[in-house]
Design a protein around this nucleic acid. Structure first.
Lengths: 218, 218
DNA sequence: AAATAAATTTAGACAAAGCTAAAAATATGT
DNA sequence: ACATATTTTTAGCTTTGTCTAAATTTATTT
């Protein structure tokens, strides 16, 4: 399987889990920053290989085999991200590009040993779950911070938006995976919130709160 | 620069340091397991980019810029080999293939941090020197074991042949980088040698002795 | 020095992956 | 329901990197 094929499978996987079912050609093109005509070409090739179910004009979905392949790539991507952050001291906003390359290295042995070296992590530096060898991953209760009410508390376990500006914003205010957050107030008007973490009080916009995942305490 | 271009530069670099000066198209083809016509095509492209000096029918040599690029690839390859052996417990006969892929990952930051993580190694697991960021590497006195005479001693610092069968042979008899070796006898007839290392006596053929580098003690 | 052999290059094809522009199918608005 | 807009596909071209077969250049023999 080529790198490009792997990238398409990964893209289709992500799109078919955000929205549902069959994914539109245009959606893929936009997601992969390419042209719809190029997507069509690739879909035909992937269909040939039994990795996707594709009928022209009807969108596409991953076959079982395609989904397994996508999960393998995602596993590699996320394990490399953990490596970069834990072992090479990258910050969480710097890892994506490099992991995009590393995810295409072909060696079962390499990824198994990397997994062991990292002590079998379940989540990557953005809080996304890492599939195991069989493509299964640990679920955990995950809600947007914006859905909590004043008085509620939770632990930061991930981000929805993983763009560099957002991640750098979080770093700046000391918000990291594992941070204990309690909601002290919520503004009706603009849905901004007052939160407390590690001794300090912060005022955060709805924009921010709706891109942070927390595991609520009960 | 594409992966293929990088591979050619690396190949030309190795060939022009084993033999001398300008490298023949056929030699490159053989070394890279491809056809001479493909090599010609690539040489033209590399010449276009100012990475090699090439005149048709006359062979090819690296320009300053081409040599620098080749050294960067070699640096990455060897650093990754160290990583695989030191951190992921690969054995020295398993690392080459994977390093062939990893050497093409593009990120200055990655390779700098990997270098630091590995504590700036000077030599790879086969004893080959690792170029620094400026393409320079540490020299050290290096002789073939076969050139020592009875009574001489030395430390094993590298292999000439780094094929799996040879490396596995060395493992089997406990010969590793850093092993203290003393020559106890040398057979006129077939140039085989009796050596002593770590308490045991071994009889090794000329084949073996002429593929092991040692730093002689004086 | 001509004849032959070996090395190298050219010409023409092919596959992967992309693009643009035009055509076809599907969806939407009134 | 029909015209328009949107989406998707097709057709044809480009680049990278490879190949085979034929042509050409260089090297070696006798």
């Amino acid at each position: 399987m080529t790198q490009s094929e792997e990238n398409y499978l990964k893209g289709i996987y992500h799109l078919s889990h955000a929205g549902q079912q069959s994914v539109a050609t245009n959606a893929i093109a936009e997601h992969m920053e390419t042209k719809p005509s190029s997507v069509t070409d690739m879909l035909k090739r992937l269909a040939e290989k039994g990795l996707v179910d594709y009928q022209r004009y009807k969108g596409v979905s991953l076959t079982e085999s395609g989904a397994q392949s996508a999960l393998k790539v995602i596993r590699k991507h996320r394990l490399w991200e953990v490596f970069l952050v834990e072992k090479l001291d990258f910050s969480w906003d710097e890892v994506h590009e490099v992991a995009e390359q590393l995810e295409h290295i072909k060696s079962e042995q390499l990824i198994d040993r990397l997994d062991a070296h990292l002590d079998y992590p379940d989540f990557d530096p953005h809080g996304d779950p890492i599939p195991d060898k069989d493509g299964k991953f640990k679920a955990r209760e995950k809600r947007l911070l914006s859905s909590l009410r004043p008085g509620d508390t939770g632990v930061c376990i991930g981000v929805k938006d993983s763009s560099s500006p957002f991640l750098r914003f979080l770093d700046k205010y000391g918000i990291a995976l594992g941070s204990e957050i309690s909601v002290t107030a919520k503004e009706e008007f603009d849905d901004s919130m007052a939160i407390r973490l590690g001794g300090q009080d912060l005022q955060i916009s709805h924009q921010i709160a709706s891109n942070l995942f927390v595991k609520p305490n009960r």
